[in-house]
Amino acid sequence: MSRQANHIPDPPAERYVDPYLAGVLLGVLLFVANYVTGHGLGASGGMSRLTAIAVDSIAPSHVDHNGFFAGLARPWRSALNHWILWTLVGAVFGAAVSGALAGRFRPQIYRGPRVSIPTRLAAALAGGALMGYGAEWGRGCTSGQALSGGAVLSVGSWLFMFAVFAGGYSLAYFVRRLWR
């Protein structure tokens, strides 16, 4: 019963924008991005750069011996001055402003009704790690590969997208305690 009590109820649907409308807006944005910059959107690419730069500042000699990190982190200044990091910074502000306008800018932990906070956070960390690992394998995430590549009809991006849904649905039943 106590678990029920501190569970945050599902948000009422009308507080979020109609999904098709959000999709149209996102699609127009994706087109504008392609028209202005010649490429789509992205998120995990920024994270790879942040990771590589973090490793470089902690253990530069390690980066010297790792082609993957060296390719991303060096030279130091140019590694930070990449469009995807600007996009990431913009997204942080955009999300914060939207959240603030809708009264959603407040500390919370989103979780299913039957899961404890430590378990939820452990799952978030593990899921994130799997996601980060997979995004590097797939050379992109839902934004940079599925969304952006899908819009320009890249063969690989479409197969990637189907694989994402296959991966999610195949595991959903086994982790249902996290969400349902």
Binding site: L130, G134, A135, C141, L159, G168
Partner: peptide, 21 residues
Amino acid sequence: PGLVGGILLGMGFIIGGYCPG
């Protein structure tokens, strides 16, 4: 590699609840 990545990513999605963006 794209298919491997996609499946791992989908699993990470349902365990962690988000994608990078």
